[in-house]
């Protein structure tokens, strides 16, 4: 309750005391935008944490070894994530539904366990310190990026590209029959998603001082997925709301001390069960989704 009282009675003080929380909310909002793009195009992909790691590690390694300015490091990190997204997408996007989800989780774990933990330049398990980190200075680019990315993706969903994604999401076979190049449009969504996730990873290193492999595990992937599950995926605002809510929730319930996790979980269950049913709209009639099969008998 103190959280809300201060938010409404002393917003300046609230901002000063919670800058890092607000920054983390911004990072998670960008990740939510990233997963929205693939969900909007009907793809249950869960590789965002991996692309985030690529953006983060590239930025920090460049900061450590090259005299390039930080924005260039971050741009290269995001672009490299997009490029690897394209390469990963070539074989992986042949899959659909839960099979696609499992393959993309496999990519995240292969990247973490196979590359990050075995290539000395990443610092392996010891991680890497970011010499250019500036936690409080890093909040401004995040606060600027969130509305810009939200607007761009919202606009994108209203272009021909967005309409094609929506058509693929609703019925991939019908979309293909109507001349939509399904593999190409899916690839574009996957690469944009990777680009945005890579950018989020690069931004996060600026507020966290440090990158280490524990941050980019399946746990992070599930967290990003939860933003979409809680917020819904019919428009870009949904996952962002999910990200804001879920990132702030541990602070909101902090007063419950030892019971914080319990209260956190109960609120989450209530939100998921009591709010609208548009979430997981990504699971369309043409897709094989585990939760869809549960609904089938009732409609039969």
């Amino acid at each position: 309750m103190d959280f809300f009282i201060q938010l409404f009675t002393d917003p300046v003080g609230f901002y000063n005391q919670h800058e890092l929380l607000i920054a983390q909310i911004g990072i998670n909002a960008i990740l939510a935008i990233s997963i929205f793009v693939t969900f909007y195009s009907g793809q249950l992909t869960l590789a965002n944490a991996g692309f985030m790691a690529i953006g983060a590690y590239t930025t920090v390694i460049m900061s450590l070894y090259l005299p390039t300015p930080l924005p260039v490091d971050m741009l290269v990190g995001a672009l490299l994530a997009a490029a690897i997204g394209f390469l990963v997408g070539l074989p992986v996007l042949r899959l659909r539904g839960v099979f696609l989800a499992i393959a993309t989780i496999g990519f995240v774990e292969a990247l973490r366990l196979g590359v990050i933990l075995n290539v000395p330049i990443t610092g392996e398990g010891q991680g890497l310190k970011n010499p250019s980190a500036d936690p409080l200075g890093g909040i401004l680019p995040i606060l600027i990026s969130v509305p810009i990315l939200t607007y761009l993706v919202w606009r994108l969903t209203h272009t021909r590209l967005g309409q094609a994604w929506a058509a693929i999401r609703e019925d991939e076979l019908a979309a293909s029959s109507n001349g939509i190049n399904v593999p190409a449009y899916k690839m574009v969504a996957f690469v944009i998603s990777a680009l945005v996730a890579g950018y989020a990873g690069a931004l996060e290193t600026h507020i966290n001082f440090f990158v280490d492999p524990t941050e980019y595990s399946v746990t992070r992937t599930i967290q990003i997925l939860t933003f979409a599950v809680v917020g819904g995926t019919t428009n870009v605002i949904g996952p962002i709301v999910g990200a804001v809510f879920l990132t702030a929730l541990p602070e909101i319930v902090r007063q419950f001390a030892a019971y914080r996790d319990v209260v956190n979980g109960i609120i989450l269950i209530l939100v998921i069960t009591l709010t609208s049913s548009d979430r997981l709209a990504v699971c369309t009639p043409s897709m094989t989704c585990p939760w869809k099969s549960r609904k089938a008998p009732s409609s039969a």
Partner: peptide
């Protein structure tokens, strides 16, 4: 005393709040 839930991001957030509040 504040719990950081063994999470680096939460740890930094809690530290910042404690320092500035």
């Amino acid at each position: 005393t504040k719990d950081d839930a063994s999470d680096k991001a939460q740890s930094a957030q809690v530290a910042q709040t404690l320092i500035q509040q």
